[in-house]
């Protein structure tokens, strides 16, 4: 890992939190400029490409901080775009890092590359902010390719898609023999794994915050002459939700360090399932208030559920690959990190 010290990270996270607070009501483009001006968007891009060179767990922490603050974007796609576009098409990286261009990322669409490698055809899944993005970075194919598409190019059409999330526009992007700006196979698998792992971190952070809101409510709400938080059945249920979040965190941490496909798929699948369950249950614990617009729980539920539904990730990693990945972990980071 590149050498990012804890103090560096805490400074960056404080910056992220203040940016998220500052642009809570701002449109996405203005918001991204605020993050860009603070230097956050280049966090995980290499220093040789003008980035901060922070490691992937730091990227996940940034995404998680934005998620907890209910900022409308995960920032994850922006971080990814600056890192990988910087490698694929360096001319655009500065625009992305400064927030003057917006790139959405798709890792699970149905896009094929022509045999000569010159055009792309197909569609990508509903993506947040697809309607205002200037570029699309996508990973596609069995032998993954990384492709950058200028969304003003001929053959690109976009459609708005309904989603539960009312704070972010969702859209599908169709490509009809579109010539990509750049194509390459280097780092395509890594980009896919990192993309879904950052999304998993964002889901986990949203779920933790929703649960925290529920706990704060239960700590003061009284029924039958006692605070609800003191009831054994409530504490047992909360403990099980806390356990599920810890399980999800462990898988995420593992995936961020090893970044293998099966580890990332497993982390995402688990976080997707756990996040929805935790937010739903947190909403339940707020009672009738949880179902109103007076409380933010519905916003967490909408964004979590929308992202899960939009991310076309396999819920079940091939079991043989998964077990092979376990075996490889025993001779890779697991013990190295303990050394």
């Amino acid at each position: 890992m590149s050498g990012v010290h804890a103090t560096d990270l805490s400074d960056v996270l404080a910056t992220v939190a203040s940016c998220a607070e500052a642009c809570r009501q701002a449109p996405l483009l203005e918001s991204l400029k605020i993050f860009a001006d603070a230097g956050v968007l280049g966090a995980i891009a290499e220093e040789s490409h003008g980035g901060l060179g922070m490691d992937f767990p730091a990227g996940a922490a940034i995404v998680g901080t934005a998620g907890k603050a209910l900022f409308s974007d995960s920032v994850g796609d922006a971080l990814l775009a600056v890192r990988y576009v910087g490698r694929l098409f360096p001319g655009l990286a500065d625009d992305l890092a400064s927030g003057s261009a917006v790139c959405v990322v798709s890792v699970g669409g149905n896009v094929a590359i022509s045999e000569d490698g010159r055009t792309l055809s197909g569609f990508v899944e509903p993506l947040p902010f697809a309607d205002i993005a200037t570029h699309l970075l996508l990973v596609t194919g069995d032998r993954p390719q990384l492709a950058l598409v200028d969304l003003s190019a001929d053959g690109v059409t976009r459609h708005t898609v309904d989603a539960l999330d009312l704070e972010r526009s969702y859209g599908a992007i169709w490509l009809d023999t579109v010539a990509p700006t750049a194509v390459g196979s280097d780092h395509a698998a890594e980009c896919r794994s990192l993309c879904i792992t950052l999304r998993a971190a964002w889901l986990e952070a949203n779920a933790r915050q929703a649960l925290q809101i529920a706990v704060q409510h239960l700590a003061v709400r009284e029924q039958f002459g006692r605070k609800l938080i003191g009831m054994p059945v409530v504490r047992q249920t909360l403990a099980h939700l806390g356990l599920k979040l810890e399980n999800a965190r462990l898988l995420n941490d593992d995936a961020l360090v090893r970044l293998t496909g099966p580890a990332a798929e497993t982390a995402y699948a688990t976080n997707a399932r756990v996040a929805v369950e935790v937010v739903e249950k947190s909403m339940h614990y707020l009672g009738a208030m949880g179902f109103t617009w007076e409380m933010p729980l519905h916003r967490y539920l909408r964004r979590v559920r929308s992202l899960v539904d939009a991310t076309n990730s396999s819920a079940e990693t091939d079991i043989v690959h998964l077990l092979a990945d376990f075996a490889s972990s025993r001779s890779s980071n697991g013990d190295a990190s303990i050394a």
Binding site: A219, R226, K227, I229, G230, Q236, L238, A239, E246
Partner: peptide, 13 residues
């Protein structure tokens, strides 16, 4: 887990 991991307030009567 409730007491020491999540540090839930005790509540009570």
């Amino acid at each position: 887990i409730a007491d020491r991991v999540m540090r839930l307030p005790k509540g009570g009567s």
